[in-house]
Nucleic acid binder design. Structure first.
Length: 800
DNA sequence: GAGTTTGAAACT
DNA sequence: CAGTTTCAAACTC
């Protein structure tokens, strides 16, 4: 389907291009060029240039933005929790999957749209490629995701900064329409890209020549942001929208830059490459048009499908959006692109994850932000299709699934798009926590999306939540519910295998998926197609109900949606006791209460989460392979595990252990303290990040389901630690740092009032066992983690 | 695939 | 807060 759909899209694109002229020659492009040149020539432009160092800054700035978006992810990922958001691709994954499976591109989309999409797609693909140091698609995809997350983050940050000014209010309406306004403003302000045709050409050429190669180097050096920029041609693209000196402008600019980043690729490629790509895709014919870009073609060829799909989805979602204004088209592209990117990323990730686990909790956060942005920006597709997502929620889903299983993102490819249920509060809080400024943007965006969604019943299902405060992922609604059970089984199998766990599927019959019994709900995700639930209210359609329920539950237990497993190397110390001994860095928030399972089965949440039992646990006869309540450490656990596992859940436990102790894991987490077993790390990270992102522990934060975190963890759990994991793990540690304090603190402060410990065994729920982290060690660990993470990253590629 | 077991979540 | 019930996942056959 996806292919066909792509073909169709491309055809339409090609047609569109034909109508309007070759893609290369699309009026948009001309406009831009002309506009740029005009700007340059215009007195205003000169004046501005004279006023400030904007010139030099322009490129730099853009590049920075771009960098941060695209690659900075590395540092950010490691260092800040934001990065985690990147991981959160879960949502994306679903999207991607869904997209491909459903060629939603509709012929309905005007030719304009198609052309644009195509351009975007191409661009997107090319970008991804460029990102990919390696040839592997997965990597490439991953990078984009990061970029996206980064972008989102930056945007949010920018917004924060810029939003301080009242003007910022405009931003929030990032909805496409808003965006347009935005763009217009920018264009008015005279931020015209200084770079003209020449640069574009140059960029294009660069892209052609070394899209792949340069990127590697770039990637290797996170610092080399500039380089990165150039290849993308962001400059050219940005050209039109240079940064304004005004904060407002900045905001817009930043956004623009972001968009432009994507768009740029899209534009350049679209203009230049698109035709080729289109042709290729359609008939696989050799590039007749642009012979120049054989290179690009090839690159694009790989990504075309994905891009096309994603684009289609996104585009389809809102054909109406068409921006008459070419200028807007640029933004649109950017916006769409984001959507695409996400989707793409998701797809990629899925692929990657499928192969390996990827997905970082961090991503989740970023994703959330992004999503929110996306939602706002991106028009949601038609209902079932899921494209977009408004936002925030995506990650959650991904995460959520993992949470339970967590283990890995399995995602199986579910295509469903779950959206995180973002509580307004949570989102807001979340954003606040991350970015003070984002909220407005998100809100506005959310609002936009909401409106749109409302307008389109189809879209409603998807995206609403971004805007909505609480929430969670909205799953793409169940697209098709084949045999849920089978799917489930499959998924579980996959999960067990550690391959797929990204998606959660519930089987609720009486809870209406509005209680924590429901994994999806608990994860902050909307139920999706694969779910076999009955009378499900955990759908975008019932967003209000979901949010209310969530609030109620949160009011009861602020940490209800927080990740169950808190990961922290330090956590143990306090409670220390036994747990401290255990190598496991993560601990179950409440602890388990197992009596018959010996904490050796998934009935045990600790075990399920891949963490050892701690003092908080009230289990009887604990034999948790990950660490016994009595204090047996993982190491001991290992030996024990082997024995126990043999008897019981050998495969699972072993896998977990392997992951933990796997060389990769070790490399990543050399420190015993960090012990990041894939599970743990993933889990903890997932949960934490998710919890953070999705659901900030605190009531205020809680908006998003913590469970999402689990999803991420699952992803991490994926077999392929190497790249993805590196990223993730690295991210994870970073997240921990950042997140941990928040989470822990949050948990502690709110719940524990400083009394983190829930000394009473009974007090299962609230007290986060690891509050200690927050106190002091947490920071340390965090720092350590960061350092590790950063260095480790390089290892990924070069590693022996 | 159906049935059982298990423990968390929800309720009283 | 403790006990009981409900629920759905995990598990077994």
């Amino acid at each position: 389907m996806g292919e066909e759909g792509e073909k169709l899209e491309r055809k339409s694109e090609s047609e569109a291009s034909g109508r309007g002229g070759p893609v290369m020659d699309t009026p948009e492009r001309n406009r831009i060029t002309t506009s740029v040149s005009k700007f340059e020539d215009s007195p205003v432009f000169n004046y501005i240039s004279n006023l400030s160092p904007i010139k030099s800054v322009k490129s730099l700035r853009i590049s920075q933005t771009f960098n941060s978006y695209s690659f900075s992810s590395l540092p950010s990922i490691f260092t800040s929790p934001h990065v985690s958001s990147l991981k959160e691709s879960r949502f994306l994954r679903r999207h991607s999957f869904s997209d491909p499976s459903k060629p939603e591109f509709s012929s309905d989309n005007g030719s304009k749209v198609d052309s644009v999409d195509g351009g975007i797609d191409v661009a997107h693909n090319s970008d991804e490629r460029s990102f990919d140091p390696g040839s592997s698609m997965g990597e490439a995809f991953v990078d984009p995701t990061y970029e996206c997350s980064n972008l989102a983050i930056e945007v949010s940050q920018t917004l924060n900064n810029s939003c301080r000014s009242p003007d910022c209010s405009t931003m929030p309406h990032c909805g496409i329409g808003t965006t347009e306004t935005f763009v217009h403003e920018i264009s008015r302000s005279g931020f015209v890209g200084s770079e003209g045709h020449l640069e574009r050409k140059r960029n294009i050429e660069q892209n052609k020549e070394g899209a792949g190669c340069d990127w590697e180097s770039l990637i290797s050096d996170a610092t080399d942001l500039l380089i990165f920029d150039s290849p993308n041609g962001t400059e050219s693209f940005n050209g039109p929208f240079q940064e304004p000196s005004d904060p407002r402008m900045r905001f817009s600019t930043s956004l623009v830059s972001e968009f432009s980043h994507y768009e740029i690729n899209g534009l350049q490629k679209t203009q230049t490459v698109c035709p080729t790509v289109v042709e290729d895709s359609d008939s696989e014919n050799p590039p007749s048009h642009v012979g120049e870009e054989g290179h690009l073609k090839e690159l694009e060829a790989t990504g075309d499908l994905l891009a096309g799909t994603s684009l289609n989805t996104c585009m389809d979602g809102e054909p109406s959006e068409q921006f008459d204004n070419e200028d807007f088209s640029g933004l649109h592209r950017g916006m769409r692109r984001r959507c695409l990117v996400f989707e793409m990323v998701g797809t990629h990730r899925k692929r990657i994850e499928d192969g390996s686990s990827s997905g970082s909790p961090l991503l989740a956060q970023s994703e959330i932000n992004i999503e929110s942005n996306d939602k706002q920006l991106v028009p949601t597709n038609n209902g079932s299709s899921r494209c977009i997502v408004p936002g925030i929620g995506l990650h959650l889903n991904a995460l959520a699934r993992t949470s339970k299983d967590h283990n890995v993102f399995s995602h199986e490819t579910l295509t469903t798009e779950n959206r995180l249920i973002s509580d307004p509060s949570s989102t807001g809080s979340f954003h606040h926590s991350w970015n003070t400024g984002q909220e407005p943007l998100n809100k506005s965006l959310a609002v936009t999306t909401m409106e749109r969604n409302r307008g389109d019943p189809d879209t409603q299902s998807r995206g609403t939540e971004d805007a909505s405060p609480a929430s969670g992922y909205v799953a793409g609604e169940e697209i098709s519910q084949g045999s849920p059970k089978k799917k489930r089984h499959v998924q579980r199998r996959l999960e067990n295998a550690g391959e797929t766990e990204s998606c959660k599927r519930c089987n609720c019959k009486k809870s209406k998926c509005l209680k924590l019994y429901c994994e999806c709900f608990a994860a902050g995700v909307y139920c999706v197609e694969p779910c076999s639930c009955q009378d499900c209210f955990n759908k975008p359609i019932h967003e209000a109900t979901v949010l209310e329920t969530r609030k109620q539950i949160e009011s009861r237990n602020p940490l209800a949606f927080a990740p169950k497993v808190i990961r922290s190397s330090d956590s143990v110390p306090e409670i220390g006791d036994d747990s401290s001994k255990t190598p496991a860095s993560a601990r179950h928030k409440r602890g388990c209460n197992c009596k018959k399972s010996g904490c050796l089965k998934k009935y045990c949440e600790c075990y399920q989460g891949g963490v050892g039992c701690s003092i908080n646990c009230r289990c009887e006869g604990c034999k948790n392979a990950f660490g016994r309540k009595d204090g047996s450490t993982l190491v001991g656990a290992e030996t024990e595990l082997e024995e126990e596992t043999e008897t019981c859940e050998k495969s699972v436990v072993k896998e977990n252990l392997r992951k933990r102790f796997s060389p990769n894991a070790i490399e990543q987490n050399p420190d015993s303290t960090l012990p990041a077993t894939p599970f743990q790390s993933s889990r903890a990270s997932l949960q934490l990040p998710f919890s953070y992102k999705n659901k900030p522990l605190r009531s205020s934060f809680l908006s998003i389901g913590s469970s999402s975190g689990s999803y991420t963890s699952q992803r991490f759990g994926m077999p392929n630690f190497l790249q993805p994991q590196h990223k993730f793990e690295k991210q994870i540690p970073a997240i921990e740092e950042d997140e941990m304090p928040e989470i822990l603190q949050g948990n502690c402060s709110p719940i524990g009032n400083g009394g983190i410990k829930s000394s009473s065994p009974n007090s299962k729920r609230v007290s986060p066992p690891h509050c200690d982290f927050g106190s002091t060690p947490g920071r340390r660990s965090s720092r350590k983690l960061i350092l590790q993470s950063i260095p480790s990253f390089p290892c990924l590629t070069p590693k022996d």
